[in-house]
C-alpha cells in the first residue's frame, strides 16, 4: 500500500506540474482540470502536494485578482519545476511502454 501510494503521489505531482506548465492556475481550477482528464483523485489531495511543490521550489504561488473578482493564489512553474517536469516526462516514457506490454501479455497468457 505504501509503495503504491508513493507511486501515485509521484505521478500526480508530475501531472500537476504539466497542468501548471500550460497555464498558471489556482487551486480549485487545478482540481477541475485534473477531473476534466478523468484523473479521479480526491479534490483535497492537491493542497498538500501544492505545498510540497512550493517547498521544493518547483512552483511558485502568487496572489492575484482573478477575472471574476476575488484574490486567488495562482501557481507558476519555476525553472527548477520545468527541469523536474522534463525529467518526469523522460521517466514516464521509459516506463510506460514496457509496463503496458507486460500488462497486456499478462492478460493474454
Amino acid at each position: 500500500m505504501a509503495i503504491r501510494s508513493q507511486l501515485l503521489k509521484g505521478i500526480l505531482e508530475g501531472c500537476i506540474l504539466a497542468v501548471i506548465e500550460k497555464q498558471p492556475v489556482y487551486g480549485y481550477e487545478l482540481s477541475v482540470k485534473l477531473h476534466e482528464y478523468d484523473l479521479d483523485v480526491s479534490e483535497g489531495s492537491i493542497y498538500p502536494i501544492l505545498l510540497r511543490l512550493q517547498k521544493e521550489k518547483l512552483i511558485q504561488g502568487q496572489m492575484e485578482k482573478s477575472p471574476n473578482g476575488p484574490n486567488r493564489k495562482y501557481y507558476y512553474l519555476t525553472d527548477e519545476g520545468k527541469d523536474s517536469l522534463e525529467e518526469f516526462r523522460q521517466k514516464w516514457d521509459w516506463i510506460k511502454k514496457p509496463v503496458d506490454q507486460i500488462l497486456e501479455k499478462g492478460e493474454s497468457l
Binding site: Y26, G27, E43, G44, L50, Q54, R72
Partner: peptide, 28 residues
Amino acid sequence: ETEEVLNEMLDHVLLAQEEGRTAKDIFG
C-alpha cells in the same frame, strides 16, 4: 503560508458548495 493555504481551502469549499458538494466530499 498557513493563512494562504487556509484561504485556498476555504475558496475551494465555497466554490464546490455552489455545485452541491460538501467540505467532507473534498477533504474526506
